[in-house]
């Protein structure tokens, strides 16, 4: 019974934006869902496998640039950007994973190396002609379904919602399966997992590649929605931190966590400017929320929900 109520509630919240008249509100719903996709993707690596990445913008940015370059340079359909970015994001995750996990990096060291990879990509995107350097890439405006550019935000929201369902489905599938058990084991205690026959490098690399592939999809949607991408939007630290916050605040390692985290973060952002309308105030509250969560709710908002459902 409780389960049915929860499912009905989630469906109602998810579908509500289709009834909104205000494009502003739909845009917020779309951005919330997009944050949830990124948080869920981060969660696969950072939650299940405890690979605390501080540089997931690397995947977002590679996805965004893959889609932008494919259509502006080679005139390919932007829809191809989705599978192409999925592949480039996954390959980058595999590359970073193999290098880092072979070297035995974890904890702080892994956080640092991901941060550095994102920074290398930012500097490269900023200085290569191929990516048009600091100018960034403009996608010519040509609205239409075939062109992956939508006149109303509802269509974008529908697509992002679909992506969220897919990412969440994959996260659930991983969590419940044997691979997920290995990934969680590797995250919780490397030595014990290794003694039980878990191939650490392989397991964690696959986890990071999966996470990277789904993060890259979010980059494509971003590019197609705002029709512009530049090195700091794509690879900036803020982006990496946002994904981490969404997952950690909602509850890392849980399925509902990143979705709850995204809703909480955007709710904070939208209400904060009624109090102090200054740039920086909303992210200031995010940081404070993270501190509160670490201190008082180590399992995030989802942990609170679990407590409630047991009561």
């Amino acid at each position: 019974m409780k389960r049915a109520i929860v499912i009905a509630g989630i469906t109602a919240v998810a579908l509500a934006p289709f009834a909104f008249n205000s494009q502003y509100l739909v845009n917020i719903a779309m951005l919330t869902a997009l944050s949830a996709v990124m948080g869920q993707a981060w969660n696969i690596a950072g939650g299940f496998g405890q690979m605390t990445s501080f540089g997931h913008a690397a995947f977002f940015g590679v996805g965004a640039y893959t889609a932008a370059i494919l259509q502006t340079r080679w005139g390919l359909s932007p829809w191809l950007g989705l599978p192409a970015s999925f592949v480039t994001g996954g390959l980058l995750g595999g590359f970073i994973g193999i290098l880092s996990f072979r070297a035995g990096l974890r904890g702080s060291y892994f956080a640092l190396v991901t941060l550095a990879f994102a920074e290398v990509l930012r500097v490269l995107a900023n200085s290569l002609d191929f990516t048009r350097g600091g100018l960034g890439i403009n996608i010519p405006l040509k609205q239409g379904l075939a062109n992956f550019q939508f006149h109303n935000r509802q269509s974008t929201y529908a697509l992002v919602l679909l992506m969220l369902v897919l990412t969440t489905g994959v996260a659930m599938f991983i969590k419940r399966g044997r691979f997920g058990a290995r990934l969680v084991a590797a995250g919780e205690n490397e030595d014990a997992a290794s003694a039980l026959g878990v191939d650490l490098v392989r397991t964690k690399t696959i986890g990071l590649a999966t996470s990277g592939a789904f993060t890259a999809l979010a980059g494509v949607v971003y590019t197609q929605t705002y029709l512009y991408i530049d090195p700091s939007i794509a690879f900036g630290v803020e982006r990496s931190i946002e994904m981490l916050l969404v997952a950690m605040i909602g509850g890392a390692g849980t399925i509902a966590g990143p979705i709850l985290g995204a809703i909480a973060l955007h709710a904070v952002a939208e209400t904060s400017h009624f109090f102090i309308d200054a740039p920086g105030f909303a992210p200031l509250l995010y940081g404070a929320t993270l501190l509160v969560i670490i201190g008082f709710l180590p399992r995030g908002i989802a942990g609170l929900g679990a407590r409630w459902s047991r009561a």
């Binding site: 405890q50 904890g107 920086g280 200031l284 940081g287 404070a288 993270l290 501190l291 670490i294």
Partner: peptide, 28 residues
């Protein structure tokens, strides 16, 4: 120290949280 209770990942994330707060406080 108080919020992380000696857990490594919690200390790491706590320092990150402090960084986010300080950077944006300065921005405000």
């Amino acid at each position: 120290g108080r919020i992380s209770r000696g857990d490594d990942r919690a200390i790491l994330l706590a320092t990150l949280g402090v960084a986010v707060v300080l950077d944006n406080l300065a921005l405000v």
